[in-house]
Design a protein around this nucleic acid. Structure first.
Lengths: 150, 150
DNA sequence: CAATCTAATGCTACAATGTTGCATCAAAAC
DNA sequence: GTTTTGATGCAACATTGTAGCATTAGATTG
């Protein structure tokens, strides 16, 4: 990784601002998530760290992600499969939907689709809403319809 | 399928109508799901079969559920945890939302909340939408707030 | 800078959820 | 009753996530 910090160490600042220790794993995880256009699974993040030459343990990565979620820096989304996916939270506005492509398995963010919170039965307290649309993404949809390579 | 299910013993008919073999496991699974007010996990269904004295294997249960989903008799929802939950599909209208209580872990159906399907980017094909609301249910919400028994 | 304090890490082991392969069984057909 | 083949049951494995604990290394203090 050639000199890592263009927008000077904002990952470091984020971590420090939350009272956590600035470690290479946390920095790399945050930067990986920030660079990604879509939510990443634990596995994908691990691969990114490997690619970046950042040594890490599977458990450490789980714990780093847990901490980020706990601190509100990142958020977890349930995707289609049983593995969590993670994305950086920007400006507290976690009110966008996600699209899960059932062909390529990818998850993309739909920024302009607000997850409408409807009226709940009495006594229910809403904390957050998750709207996940399933189907075929632009790449797999029409293109994949004729080929269906799999 | 024009009205595949006359009221009583409909589990057998449902299975036969889809060209499957009528086995005790499938019957019991369908009846368990039909009787339940909310989606059940694999584990809960297994417990119900045990309680009913229906011998079964873990794998058989997974396969029975897979088959039901494949046939469109049941549907899978992603809940909050990594385990699937299953519910019977009634009238093809799988357009209701679910509420996941983060205190008791229960999932309840919100029949009156349509999962609005918004406009997608070009090329995306929507197959189904899943709206899951997270928070505290009526039982855990206010009552649990003071006690938080756990 | 060295000493210290303790949050994070990296093991190892384990738990939960699901899947695959294959021999056997039994539901449906003959 | 016999045959056919879908469904089952078992064992073994895969994936995803957690718990306990000794060790390492960020931060702090002197």
């Amino acid at each position: 990784m050639p000199h890592a910090a263009p927008a000077a160490g904002s990952a470091r600042d984020l971590i420090a601002a939350h009272g956590g220790r600035v470690t290479r794993t946390r920095i790399a995880v945050i930067e990986t998530l920030q660079r990604s256009a879509h939510p990443l699974s634990h596995d994908e993040i691990g691969a990114a760290l490997d690619a970046a030459g950042i040594a890490h343990d599977r458990v450490t990565l789980y714990r780093a992600l847990d901490w980020l979620v706990e601190q509100g820096i990142a958020q977890r989304i349930a995707g289609g499969e049983r593995a969590w996916r993670f994305e950086i939270r920007v400006g507290g506005a976690h009110r966008h939907a996600h699209f899960h492509c059932e062909r390529c398995g990818q998850i993309v963010c739909l920024e302009d689709v607000p997850a409408a919170a409807p009226h709940l039965p009495a006594g229910f307290e809403l904390e957050r809403a998750e709207l996940v649309l399933h189907g075929a993404c632009a790449d797999c949809g029409r293109a994949g319809a004729k080929e269906r390579g799999r």
